[in-house]
């Protein structure tokens, strides 16, 4: 069985899509924010690999073609952004203010909590890029002397978590303005959060797309100052 699956060129793609289909079905049935189809798909695929005893590399040999689409998809985030360009021009002060606050709070809170939880210096710098998009975060982690796999893991976890709890967090902190909600999703949960924000609404999706690019660039510019603090 293992050998047959190991040679199947479409196994990884098929099992990922099947997991996501189940996730969509559960979301429709349960109608609760924690029933996030992406989270359900990840857990189901992990479970399937463990139960069937299939190596991640074997799975990824086929599933990597899904990741391959990520760059053109990210490029397409410019489309909702273009459609909301007037809104961006009108609210540019709130956009800049919100995103600077987001990046500052991210770096400062990672620093504070790393000290509090006694993380090592290496773990601390690996977590600094956790709220920005994977492609920028990986390069930044390397530059700061972090563990790149830990950075990627923390970025993915942050994204999935943000997508799942984002609406609850916005409700809790009474963030109702659609521009502010979108910025909050993008600044904290990058592209994964943005894929959720796009489902909430066009304005939210556009502002979240914008936040990925701007927050990523601000973080690159200032993160190296934080390396020496702990």
């Amino acid at each position: 069985m293992k050998e047959i699956i190991g040679h199947a060129a479409y196994f990884g793609v098929a099992v990922s899509l099947a997991g996501y289909a189940v996730g969509l079905w559960i979301k429709k049935k349960v109608k609760k924010p924690f029933a996030n189809p992406l989270l359900i798909a990840i857990l189901l695929v992990m479970g399937a690999l463990v139960v069937l005893g299939i190596d991640y590399d074997v799975y990824n040999e086929s599933a990597k073609y899904l990741s391959y689409l990520l760059t053109p998809a990210t490029v397409c985030l410019a489309i909702p952004l273009y459609q909301q360009l007037e809104l961006l021009k009108k609210h540019w002060k709130a956009v800049i203010g919100g995103l600077v606050a987001g990046v500052a709070s991210s770096l400062v809170s990672v620093l504070g909590l790393s000290v509090l939880f006694h993380l090592t210096h290496e773990q601390y710098v690996s977590l600094l890029p956790k709220s920005i998009t994977t492609a920028i975060g990986m390069g930044l982690s390397e530059e700061l002397g972090g563990i790149v796999t830990l950075t990627v893991a923390s970025i993915i976890l942050t994204g999935v978590l943000g997508a799942v709890i984002g609406e609850a967090v916005c409700r809790l902190f009474r963030i109702k303005n659609r521009v502010a909600v979108g910025l909050a999703f993008g600044a904290s949960a990058h592209a994964v959060g943005t894929s959720r924000a796009l489902e909430i609404g066009e304005v939210e999706g556009a502002m979240s797309s914008l936040a990925i690019a701007v927050s990523g660039l601000i973080t690159v510019a200032v993160a190296s100052f934080f390396v020496g603090f702990y």
Partner: peptide, 12 residues
């Protein structure tokens, strides 16, 4: 797009 994040996340 959400489907495209599955492979990296399973890598956890």
């Amino acid at each position: 797009m959400p489907v495209m994040f599955i492979p990296a996340a399973v890598g956890l």
